[in-house]
Design a protein around this nucleic acid. Structure first.
Lengths: 349, 349
DNA sequence: CTGTTAGCGCATTCAC
DNA sequence: GTGAATGCGCTAACAG
């Protein structure tokens, strides 16, 4: 319950004025080494934590953030993530934040490159990136680094870059969970279908591939008797029905199926239409379309990684850095992986 | 991105001084009806939201909160809830908050009554109650109401009282989830054991009974072929081993078992010692003991209701009320119900 | 190098 | 019934 020390108290104890303390706090020049050390010692001793809000009030500065993520439809994954950033801006409404949103087409690397090129021109104070393409993202990071603009990742991390922080989920663990649920919810010896979406191959492979690795590892390590059958499908192909129909009829004995991204509803709704309701479906993300499908009983479980929280944390982390250059030792933050069934669906916002 | 309106802007627009606006904001007397209405109209129009933090700075008042919950051991349910309250106090460290913690013995109504009697004497500004006994809690609420001290519930609500808010989970839904998981993770026609702890009968019956109702409803409604067998046991009985051993040997064919409170590890560890690892165990709460048991592979799933978040929200809700008399229409807040398996265990703090 | 000062959004006290 | 003035923790510009 120790009362928070104020800048005035620190100054009094150090025998200096508040101006000098402020200079130390902000690593500004013009302080004698002796003063700096003395003040720093007291700061450490009392565990001084500045008041972000009153700081911001006094600063009356506007911070410009930019966020670039795949184009979001309402109620879909990236829309939820954006909602989280807006929530943070709302909650820190005393800090004046301007947010530029730059969505890009997650299926078109060239379009992505073009959007990414606009970011440095906006001269933002910091950037939030939701990566879909490896090379394009890497390139953007290099430019930002050169301009001294800090950035954080959401949803996915790109190895070898130097983000301030990354907010993702442990994707292999997510895949393992799918394996766990499906092998438990279906009889021993039965077949499990893994439907890989075509688009995985070019863009979002990043997450889906990791989930797939986790799922396959679960199958090989857990000593269960199920068999995994993989098939590629394109959720946007108009002839998808024929394709899936062919797959499921030529593979009898499938008791469970999964999609490792948010397009699970496409599969689930198809199975329902064909009367294949006995097949247990597990997919990712609490998107509106998946929620509807689950409410109709077509999806058994959804595995989610709190996109809105990712967006929220991305903003607050950047604010802490912009106001105080505060950084966290381990840049990688793993979100909780939520398992949503019909019964707890309503309580996830 | 609409910039937050400030009290000064409101005053300017209304053609009054900030003092008058402040009086309206705090429902203080001494404002003409004409001014009040004009100001209120502008307030509503711009959706004015005060800055809690700068308010608190200017107020330099200390708020005294009291929290009374069952005695917590480290890493157990109530300890996590208390951690949430401390986190909130930390996060709002610019608001000077004094928290009195008054734990009571959840198995002794007389002790509870005694602790509850101390609360009004402390003259707190607001109280957080984690109820275990119906009559005792009801009595405390009456006293607080008479003294004009606001209170909120965490974990459990007591019907017929008038709390500012209640932070709980939908307990029947939690019970249904246990039913869902167990019936899916065990073969059709198999038996599921519901182990009721003895202590349920006097104290925490409140939550456990609701979970039981939800579980039983799941069994009767979902049209599955499993059979539910109920048995009462006392987790603190030294001869518990014999008791459980007798139960499981006289009921062959049990494939799943559950405990509707945080004592699941007692059952799970017993089953493991007896080599009955094929029985799938589901229990409640992410306590340290349950976590250990799950890591050893003894518990399959844990159903959790975010106690630390309950504590956090209890504090922030009270602060909003104390500073601005702000209350939420629907006092009942349902927490998300988390389903934790081995694979996502590490990511829930 | 350091202290002083004005000012941010807000609450309160004190004149009028 | 109302406005002006003071002060809270904080930052930044200015004067020495």
């Amino acid at each position: 319950m120790a009362k928070q020390a104020t800048i005035t108290e620190i100054a009094k104890r150090a025998g200096v004025s508040i101006g000098t303390v402020d200079r130390v706090l902000h690593n500004r020049a013009g302080v004698s080494e002796a003063s700096r050390q003395k003040i720093q010692a007291i700061l450490d001793e009392v565990g001084y934590k500045p008041n972000l809000h009153t700081s911001a009030v006094a600063l009356r500065k506007e911070y410009r953030l930019a966020i670039s993520v795949p184009k979001a439809e309402a109620g879909q994954y990236w829309d939820h993530l954006l909602a989280g950033t807006k929530q943070a801006i709302e909650e820190y409404s005393d800090i004046h934040i301007h947010l530029d949103i730059l969505p890009y087409d997650q299926f078109d690397p060239a379009a992505c490159r073009q959007v990414f090129a606009e970011i440095p021109e906006l001269q933002p104070d910091a950037v939030i990136i939701g990566p879909a393409f490896d090379a394009e993202t890497r390139n953007l990071c290099n430019v930002l680094q050169a301009d001294g603009i800090p950035y954080v990742f959401v949803d996915t991390t790109i190895e070898g870059t130097r983000p301030l922080a990354a907010f993702t989920a442990d994707q292999p663990a997510g895949g393992s969970i799918v394996g766990n649920i499906l092998t438990h919810a279906t009889p021993p010896e039965s077949k499990i279908a893994l439907l890989l979406t075509h688009s995985d191959e070019d863009s979002k492979a990043l997450n889906s591939e990791q989930r797939r690795a986790g799922l396959e590892r679960y199958f090989s390590d857990s000593g269960q008797t199920h068999r995994l059958i993989e098939e590629v499908f394109d959720p946007y192909d108009p002839r998808i029905e024929e394709h899936l129909y062919g797959f499921f009829t030529s593979n009898p004995g499938i008791a469970g199926a999964c999609v490792l991204n948010s397009r699970g509803y496409v599969l689930a709704d198809f199975l329902h239409r064909e009367g294949l309701d006995h097949i247990t479906v597990v997919a990712f993300d609490l998107t509106e379309t998946n929620v509807r499908s689950m409410k109709q009983g077509n999806i058994y479980a959804l595995v989610c990684q709190q996109p809105q929280r990712q967006g929220f944390l991305a903003v607050t982390t950047l604010l802490e850095y912009l106001l105080y250059r505060r950084t966290n030792k381990n840049a990688q933050h793993f979100m909780p992986i939520d398992i949503v069934l019909r019964e707890n669906l309503d309580y996830y916002r």
